[in-house]
Design a protein around this nucleic acid. Structure first.
Length: 295
DNA sequence: ACGGGCCCCTGTTGGC
DNA sequence: TGCCAACAGGGGCCCG
């Protein structure tokens, strides 16, 4: 489940159902799922066995659970120096399921716990997602070392609107590319980029240098607004691939204004929504509400 | 520094 | 009915 609201839905589920529990065993069923854990599957499993998953954290589209030891679990945070890090890619799911339940077709990694309660399963059809154990970088908010280059996401306090605006103004690129650049702002993907641009009445090909500070502020407000609304509805899912840890879909897809709505009337002006190829994907917009200006 | 193109995968959909 | 191309919410890497 790719974008920030869907990942946040998963984080909340992990926080509720998994945090504080101690891993009995980790099983890797598909090597590609841990390809970024350089020491390999056996080391990954060995490093997790007996560790406690202290909490569930998120930045952008990445999730992580700091690792502790059972005896110090009550004093969580004091000694955690590494974490289980996850990215769901295009089709990854983290599911909390009863130990005996049927094995999913695309089950890649399974964690069982010493309380014999529900397992945590990483299921991923397309295998673009991955898990790894990584050190937490000590500076500021503890963030796994592999993602220190990712920018804060717009729902974090650490996100600085002014810094974002300045970085945009010196970039030679277009606004949709910039929204998708996780080193500038994290958590925004193809759906919420299109939805936020529509709300802000901005064409995705607007040069970032052409954006006023005010317009950038409006765009950030639109990003936060659409993500907040999506979160309130459990995220966006067109099919069963995008579900929370209990396998349930969100229903924000009903509230999308342009994404996936080629040819349908724009909710604001009634003109047809346009689909265009962009970055080997699709962009949806209303040409009337989102004219290209400033190029 | 930036954009384009390709890759990594599996599955579904729509046109012929 | 079958076949095949296009497409899907992710990112990384190489090249010019």
């Amino acid at each position: 489940m790719p974008e920030l609201p869907e990942v946040e839905v998963v984080r909340r589920g992990l926080s509720r159902w998994v945090a504080g529990r101690t891993i009995a065993q980790a099983e890797v069923l598909h090597a590609r799922a841990i390809r970024r854990h350089v020491p390999g599957a056996a080391e990954f499993a060995g490093r997790l066995a007996g560790r406690t998953l202290v909490s569930a954290e998120r930045r952008g589209k990445y999730l992580w659970m700091p690792l502790g030891d059972p005896e110090s679990a009550s004093g969580a945070g004091s000694g955690s120096s590494e974490a289980l890090l996850a990215h769901l890619g295009m089709s990854g799911q983290l599911l909390v399921v009863e130990p005996g339940s049927p094995v999913e077709k695309h089950l890649r990694v399974r964690l069982s716990f010493d309380d014999d309660g529900p397992e945590l399963r990483f299921v991923d059809q397309r295998t673009f997602g991955h898990l790894l154990v990584a050190p937490l970088a000590p500076l500021g908010r503890p963030v796994p070392e592999p993602i220190v280059h990712i920018a804060a996401d717009p729902l974090e306090e650490a996100f600085d609107d002014e810094v974002f605006a300045v970085r945009l103004s010196v970039r030679q690129t277009e606004i949709k590319r910039a929204l998708l650049d996780q080193s500038l702002i994290s958590g925004v993907g193809n759906i919420y980029a299109d939805e936020a641009l529509w709300r802000a009445r901005l064409h995705g090909r607007t040069p970032t240098r052409a954006l006023s500070r005010r317009k950038t502020g409006e765009l950030l407000a639109a990003v936060r607004e659409v993500m907040g609304e999506a979160l309130g509805q459990g995220g966006t899912s067109f099919d069963s691939l995008y579900v929370n840890v209990n396998g349930e879909s969100g229903y924000f897809d009903r509230s999308l204004n342009v994404y996936g709505r080629q040819g349908e009337p724009c909710a604001r002006c009634g003109g047809p929504v346009l689909r265009e190829a962009f970055m080997n994907r699709s962009s949806y917009s209303c040409p009337r509400c989102q004219p290209l200006v400033g190029s």
